[in-house]
Amino acid sequence: MPRAVLPMVAVLALVLLPHPGQAATITTLKSPKLDVPTSDAMFPAGPGSDAINNSCLACHSADHVLNQPSLSREAWQEVVNKMITAYKAPIGADDAKAIVDYLVRTKGAS
């Protein structure tokens, strides 16, 4: 990015003007000690809900899935495959099928 050098001077000057002294003020950081909320919400009960609860909630909350659009069986199969192959979700073939069926039943689209 050879364009960076000259414009940077101008950028810095403009940035600094409306906020004088900001860059100079922080010299130490304070240790945070914070709790980040989690969720224990489960998937709506129905065929396959045990499989999806047991297989998916270790890594992400249920709202991750519930906020997704309605998708085709092929698209849901692709999502579950990605969770298994890319993200190493330990899901056996039977559970994977039950999860895809659950997703198609609750959030399916033709």
Partner: peptide
């Protein structure tokens, strides 16, 4: 959420 004001919750965790 800590140190956060009003936010749209897209995913809890």
């Amino acid at each position: 959420y800590p140190q956060k004001g009003r936010m749209i919750l897209q995913r809890s965790s």
